[in-house]
């Protein structure tokens, strides 16, 4: 269970960043009073263009960033005050977080299993199961450095799930993957849903959101502009497809900002 309440995140910009963003403001509001709820047994999709604040939201849920205002609760624990307990019950996967390329998937799996305080027997059982599912067994002893992008991503996913977390946070889980690997990832997310886990993902691939997510929240410029099931969103925006709905909303809300 993830509860985000009035989450506002403001970044202080240094002079270089201000120049890059062509702004004179020394603050950038990445998220503005974002509220959402992701429940066990469902996949929540966070949709938005680049720079909308998706990653900031997920990082805050994963305790890596602290809210400027508002609060985030994961499995009933506050992400600031009880961040270790939160980290115990989540897995967070993003492109920027990588596995040490000098080690094998097997070594990394065992290492993170131990960091999560699991015993060797549980780690080995879990590894057998996950490595078998993602087809990592054949290269489990190879250095991660020598693996292809898809293999690396699969290994990252398997390692991040070592402690069988209640809450799964995936930042653009299928970006950069071929269709086959992407499919195995989405299939696994569905299975996690079946197992009653809370899954939250961010994506800008509309078809992925359509097929996978039980509920969708669209953020533009740090503000959640709509939330609901696919049908609810299509009805509300009077659109045929999610992509049309997205463009409609983008036109409305991006103009307001300018």
């Amino acid at each position: 269970m993830i509860i985000v309440k009035d989450l506002t995140k403001v970044y202080k910009l240094n002079k270089k960043q201000m120049l890059e963003l062509k702004t004179k403001k020394s603050m950038k509001k990445a998220l503005d009073k974002l509220s959402l709820e992701a429940r066990p047994g469902e996949i929540y999709g966070l949709l938005g263009p680049n720079g909308a604040g998706k990653t900031t939201a997920l990082r805050t849920i994963a305790t890596l960033l602290k809210p400027t205002e508002g609060e985030v609760k994961v499995c009933g624990f506050d992400t600031v005050k009880e961040s270790e307990k939160v980290r115990k019950s989540i897995c967070f996967l993003t492109n920027e977080i990588k596995l040490d390329p000098q080690f094998s998937p097997k070594y990394m799996f065992n290492f993170f299993g131990r960091l999560h305080g699991q015993d060797e027997k549980a780690i080995n059982e879990r590894r057998e199961k996950l490595f078998h599912y993602f087809g990592i067994k054949d290269f489990e002893d190879k250095k991660i450095d020598e693996l292809s992008t898809g293999m690396k991503q699969k290994a990252s996913i398997a390692v991040s799930l070592v402690h069988d977390p209640e809450v799964v946070i995936f930042d653009e889980p299928t970006t950069g993957l071929d269709i086959i690997t992407a499919r195995s990832v989405t299939e696994y997310l569905k299975q996690l849903r079946e197992d009653g886990k809370t899954v939250i993902i961010s994506t800008h691939i509309m078809t992925e959101a359509e097929k996978l997510c039980d509920r969708i929240g669209i953020i533009i410029n740090g503000v959640k502009v709509i939330e609901g099931t696919l049908n609810e969103i299509l009805v509300e925006t009077k659109s045929e497809e999610l992509e049309d709905a997205f463009f409609e909303l983008y036109k409305q809300h991006n103009r307001e900002e300018v």
């Binding site: 307990k85 989540i90 977080i97 990588k98 040490d100 390329p101 960091l115 999560h116």
Partner: peptide, 17 residues
């Protein structure tokens, strides 16, 4: 180096201080 490679953050999301 680990910060650059993104391998340090993988440790930051694990439940240790």
């Amino acid at each position: 180096g680990e910060k650059e490679r993104g391998t340090l953050s993988s440790m930051l999301v694990s439940p240790i201080k």
